[in-house]
Amino acid sequence: MIDVKRRVFLKGSAAAGAVVAAAGAGLIAPQAVLAEWNEAAFRSKSVADAVKAVTGTDASVESADIKIKAPEIAENGAVVPVSVSSSIAGVTAISILAASNPSPMVASFALGETTVADVSTRIKMGKTGDVIAVVQAGDKVYTAKKEVKVTIGGCGG
C-alpha cells in the first residue's frame, strides 16, 4: 500500500511550518513528517493556522481563477458536494476548508505534474459558513471562498 514514490512526490506540498509544528509537538519523528498525514493542519481549530500548516506561509492572495462548485444551500450538511478547479498554471496542491467546522481543514490534494487542477469530493458542514479553497502553485498561495448555507431540515426526502 505505502508507495515509496509518494514520499518524494509529497515533498513539494508539505509545509515547513507543519514540520516544525508537528515535530515540535513530539507527535512524529521529523524525518517521517513529509510522508505523514498533516496532523497540525487537520487538528488546527482556525482557518489561518490550518492554511499555514499546509502551505508554510500566511501570505496568500485571493484569486478569481479558482472556481468552487458547491450548493448555495446544503441539502444535508452531512453530504455537501464540493468541486475546486483552477486555471492557474503549475498548481501543485489544492486544499478545501470549511470555515465554520470545529477543525476547518477537510481535504488536501497534492497533484502530480500531469494532474489537472480539478478535484471533487463531498464534505460535512456543521453550520453555515464559507467553503475555502487554497491553491498552491510554485511558492504562491491563492485562495477563494464560497458561502454554503446549512440549516436543520424538517423531514427530507
Binding site: K69, P71, I73, E75, V79, P81, R122
Partner: peptide, 16 residues
Amino acid sequence: GVYAIDQISRDSWEAI
C-alpha cells in the same frame, strides 16, 4: 421527488 421541483437541491443531487 423534490429534485423535480427545486433547482438548488437538484444541483446537489446531480453532483451526488
